[in-house]
């Protein structure tokens, strides 16, 4: 099978890769790039465990052909070290016991961060809806939902205070 040359920016670093036509982005990240924080739970686009950011938007890396991602900017769970929302979410996840086995957690955090950014006024019901594409078999979701809602609420308060000043 002929290999395809692609260039990606992964967590801020340019990477040149040769991939098989049938390689999915998840395979490339977890294999040659050794970024195993991106988990695969179903490999058919349902569970959300493999969610990463492609060009700033959440995407399922198990059904994104690597060969078609040439030039894309990728961010995985390993690439959010300096991100303020992610820091708040991580703190909230551990406080609210939003993880048990940890397998769904990277995908939850990536999508949760997107929800926090996109929907500054979301309430619990909306967060439940928005997170419904990410399966967790361990927690029953209450901690996950509470964690995300708590970050949204804290940011709302911070915004208000900022506006009052």
């Amino acid at each position: 099978m002929s290999r395809i040359d692609i260039t990606l920016t992964v967590n801020g670093e340019p990477r040149e890769l040769k991939v098989e036509p049938r390689d999915q982005l998840a395979d490339v990240l977890r294999g040659p790039l050794m970024l195993t924080g991106t988990h695969v739970g179903c490999e058919h686009g349902v569970c959300g465990a493999c969610t990463i950011e492609i060009d700033g938007a959440p995407a399922r890396s198990c059904i994104a052909h690597a060969g078609s991602c040439d030039g894309a900017t990728i961010r995985t769970i390993e690439g959010f070290g300096d991100d303020e929302i992610m820091r708040a979410l991580r703190e909230a996840f551990t406080r609210e016991h939003a993880l048990q086995c940890g397998y769904c957690t990277p995908g939850m955090l990536v999508v949760g961060r997107d929800v926090v950014r996109r929907l500054p006024d979301a309430d619990e019901a909306r967060v439940r809806e928005e997170m419904s594409g990410n399966l967790c078999r361990c927690t029953g979701y209450r901690g996950i939902v509470r964690a995300i809602v708590s970050v949204i609420v804290a940011r709302r308060h911070a915004r208000r205070e900022g506006a009052c000043r």
Partner: peptide, 18 residues
Amino acid sequence: RRKEDARFLIGKGRYVGD
């Protein structure tokens, strides 16, 4: 709070597939 959370939250859990 759980001690094990630290590694899972940054994607450093280590499962067989990793």
